[in-house]
């Protein structure tokens, strides 16, 4: 196969969505850790109720981007950020946006399962109890619904009071997803959610992701290109903090427009 020449403009090749169909709009995002730039002038729109995957080599900034979407960088004093991120048209850095409320709307699942050292039930109820004002019955219902949504209910329904740490890794990750779903997010950010799991657990999590997109916007960061191909509708390829190519997943994997993308997905990256 002849190697394509990188003739496209430096800013890459992008699929675009109208503001009406997009859930998250990122424009001109620059982010640095101290002096080290991590994201450079990044602009993209994430479509609503679809699965969007960010792929790219380690250190390309895809996790950094994900964490910017629910302002987890706020805690790190070294991070400087410019640009704009809009959730359903609302600037998430606007002073009237409460960060806790934003994080409830934009849930996040991390690479390694991080259940709290509490019972399974308490883990799922954690976010609900933070909001307060919910009756016990209502919490029970939401916990069951969330565990069912995360395809974990059948496995844990008879031991809800057992420690969450007694679950297997795959179960823990689904528990964490259930915990996130319980607070009713609009967007679910998944940071390599299956990288610490065995193949069967991975398949379960992927199936879960596909099922969830009917009600949620999902953003997935992954190292695993087969996984991106299997579960996502759109894929963005990032390299050195820049967006290189952003296209429907089928197109990006079968017919990438840029040589850099093709080199990466075929494993010929320098």
């Amino acid at each position: 196969m002849p190697v394509k020449q990188d003739t496209a403009p430096r800013r890459g090749a992008f699929v675009d969505f109208t503001p009406e169909t997009s859930c998250l709009e990122i424009s001109g995002l620059d982010l640095r850790y101290g002096d080290k730039p991590a994201l450079r002038d990044l602009t993209l729109r994430v479509p609503r109720h679809r699965v969007t995957a960010f792929i790219g080599p380690s250190g390309c900034g895809k996790s950094t981007l994900l964490r910017a979407l629910n302002r987890l960088h706020d805690l790190n004093e070294d991070v400087q950020m410019e640009g704009e991120i809009r959730l359903e048209g609302q600037d998430i850095h606007a002073p009237e946006v409460a960060v806790a409320e934003l994080r409830r709307r934009v849930g996040m699942v991390f690479q390694a399962p991080n259940p709290f050292p509490m019972s399974i039930y308490d883990n799922v109820a954690f976010g609900l109890r933070l909001q307060g004002g919910l009756r016990k019955r209502r919490i029970d219902d939401i916990v069951e619904w969330a565990l069912r949504s995360a395809a974990l209910w059948e496995e844990v329904e008879d031991r809800l009071q057992a420690s969450a740490w007694s679950l297997s890794g795959g179960q823990q990750q689904r528990l964490v997803i259930a915990r996130t779903l319980a607070v009713g997010p609009e967007v679910l950010l998944l940071d390599e959610p299956a990288s610490a799991l065995d193949p069967i657990s991975t398949l379960k999590v992927e199936e879960l992701i596909r099922n969830l997109k009917s009600s949620l916007t999902l953003v997935l960061v992954t190292h695993n290109m087969q996984q991106a191909a299997r579960v996502s509708d759109y894929t963005a390829f990032l390299q050195d903090g820049e967006l290189v190519e952003y296209a429907p997943t089928d197109t990006l994997f079968t017919n990438p427009r840029l040589a850099r993308t093709e080199n990466y997905i075929t494993g010929r990256m320098a």
């Binding site: 629910n70 987890l72 805690l75 806790a100 409320e101 994080r103 409830r104 849930g107 996040m108 991390f110 690479q111 390694a112 991080n114 259940p115 709290f116 954690f126 976010g127 933070l130 909001q131 964490v176 915990r179 996130t180 607070v183």
Partner: peptide, 10 residues
Amino acid sequence: RQREGALALG
């Protein structure tokens, strides 16, 4: 990740 997990739940 325990701290971030709590923060991410609001």
